[in-house]
Design a protein around this nucleic acid. Structure first.
Lengths: 351, 351
DNA sequence: GTCAAATATGCACACGTGTGCATATCGAGT
DNA sequence: ACTCGATATGCACACGTGTGCATATTTGAC
């Protein structure tokens, strides 16, 4: 007989709640009716620093609890000037640096009481359409990760009075705030470290040349080399991914002009190249080859890699973004600011 | 003299847009005034399948373009039944599996025209408060990753008529939809693979025992061992992280009862243990030790790891979530469904 | 030219909230 | 008993949109 009352695998707690078909969200009106007060009183009971008698407030909150009432932010945000919605546009969360970045940013926005609407997630293509959809809501601000969006879209945001913060590139338009690593300094640190290890035949493995950081890091590399009267042995282009770094790394290391050191535009590619060198080509690092990356993602610190790299610190960057947001809320029309995050060399075992 | 007009490093495009201090969002009223029509006409011009003459529509859209008008979703969503907002509650984006999961989910939601509000990001603690804040908005649905939220909060969602989808555990309450990997089958596959490699002294490295997947994978492991009349050599607890896997891995491999194979509750821990074995203890894998993980995150396929693992496929899971969402929109009151995602063994070089 | 059907347009309401304003109630000090 | 300030409460409006309804205009057929 299967007529037992026991239902295995059920989460305990009883009072099973269900979604009623036609039922709509409970409104302040209904709470007021149940508590026997006016609707205004209900609103005031949920607003800090409004006049409501202690006793009535208790009764109202109780009724609200029973009915499961929560003020509707849609309605409130209509007249109010804050929606608490902040859009975060990111290129590709498969990119480990971006992933870490978005994770921390989301956390901090949550702590600030903001609701981050994330756009992008996967796919490297430009996200303009999705951004426009988000702009249908009156956003408190929009944080854009470099390369995810066109200038046109930024202009749309400003036209809708939505403050814009761009991270990962300098964006000198209107009163947009920009935030960017000092890539020049980073490249200089990398070349310096390789140079001091006695390396002279240095190559460069870059990412998508359309991206701002790539342009700066590449230019910084060339300048740093020139300062030491060195000529790059090889300049290669890839795509900022592990797979790309691996494939292009193979080519570089099997090419006619073999470098004894490679500076990579980010850590993912550096790890890819490291794999190509060690696993596939049987080279010894750092004996046969030095490798330095950029960013310092989590994996770079793993024992099997122990990658020397230039740290592009996430925590301070996210902190600055939050500061920029707050000062923007205080003065929406203020001049746009440009902030350079200073990288630090993290010299481990691959150079 | 610094009075040159040139401003270097500017993004080209002219017509610099700024944020005016007191300025508010452009309203349909203003567009109507400029185009010389009624406000209703403006609304209809922006609504598909509404009666507006071709000529008037053109004029309205032109005026809207000039003024930079976009319908305010806040106001629209007030009477409409869809807000297009979907909350995504995630535990910790530092977890590579979750990170990949959220990335793909966000992308698909974007494609569906939904705006994903991400909650969590970092920190393993429960996110109840942040979820409540998001519930102030009338969400179309909320997707919760296992372990991020209490039963109470789920009940709050249902009370507010917000459809709930839980991923990563079975949640048999009300009409909540659940989605979960078939962990039992996965553990069986892992033990089978180790057994067929001739391993008999098999250990287990688990994550946080409070998590549903850990409980199922652990129980599945024990059952699979029993089926082969094998006794686990060691049962260890860690935290699902690389660092945890490394540290606990060291202990296991230096303990009195050394296993010749370890099945790990997820890939991050497996990679940590792999590092401990190879780099720190100088062991050969798979000669001296077999390792099998769970999930198949990107790094597991990297040449230097080449980890044998049980794939907990992200793409199908996300696809199922989207399907559940759509069928829930079609029938909000329908019975909750439970879906098991079938894992597949990905046998590489560590067993 | 007539009439009906199809198309176009404006009015006014509903959506759910916060809050200014006017008014009512209460407590205390003289 | 009277007054004044503090506290409490309800009414009504604004927020910006979509849409039903009634009405105006055009189209097409005979």
């Amino acid at each position: 007989m299967m007529t037992t009352k026991d239902e295995p695998n059920r989460v305990p707690g009883g009072g099973v709640q269900r979604i009623d078909a036609g039922r709509r969200r409970v409104t302040a009106e209904e709470v007021a009716r149940l508590a026997g007060v006016s609707r205004s009183a209900v609103s005031r009971a949920h607003t800090r620093g409004a006049y409501v008698s202690r006793e009535k407030k208790r009764k109202i909150l109780e009724a609200a609890e029973v009915l499961g009432y929560r003020p509707n932010a849609l309605a409130a945000g209509l007249s109010s000037k804050r929606s608490n919605l902040v859009a975060v546009v990111t290129g590709n969360l498969k990119n480990h640096y971006d992933s870490e970045f978005v994770g921390k940013l989301v956390r901090q926005l949550n702590d600030l009481g903001k609701l981050p609407i994330v756009i992008g997630g996967t796919s490297d293509s430009i996200q303009d359409n999705d951004v426009l959809e988000a702009l249908d809501y009156p956003l408190d601000a929009i944080v854009i990760r470099a390369g995810s969006v066109t200038v046109e879209t930024v202009r749309s945001c400003l036209k809708l009075q939505v403050p814009v913060i761009v991270s990962g590139r300098i964006f000198d338009v209107g009163n947009v705030d920009s935030l960017c690593c000092d890539n020049n300094a980073g490249s200089e640190m990398a070349v310096a470290a390789l140079f001091e290890s006695g390396r002279k035949n240095i190559g460069y493995l870059g990412g998508d040349p359309g991206l701002f950081s790539e342009q700066e890091r590449c230019a910084g590399f060339i300048a740093a080399m020139r300062r030491r009267r060195l000529e790059p042995v090889v300049m290669a282009q890839s795509d900022f991914s592990f797979g790309g770094g691996y494939a292009t790394g193979l080519k570089i290391l099997q090419g006619s002009r073999r470098p004894d050191a490679v500076f990579c535009g980010n850590d993912a590619m550096a790890l890819g190249l490291l794999n190509a060198a060690r696993e596939t080509l049987g080279m010894r690092v750092p004996e046969d080859l030095s490798v330095i990356g950029f960013d310092d993602i989590e994996m770079s610190g793993w024992p099997c890699f122990n990658l020397s790299t230039i740290r592009n610190p996430v925590e301070p960057a996210v902190g600055e973004i939050v500061s920029l947001l707050e000062s923007r809320f205080a003065d929406p029309a203020r001049q746009g600011q440009t902030i350079r995050i200073v990288p630090t060399p993290v010299l481990r075992g691959t150079h």
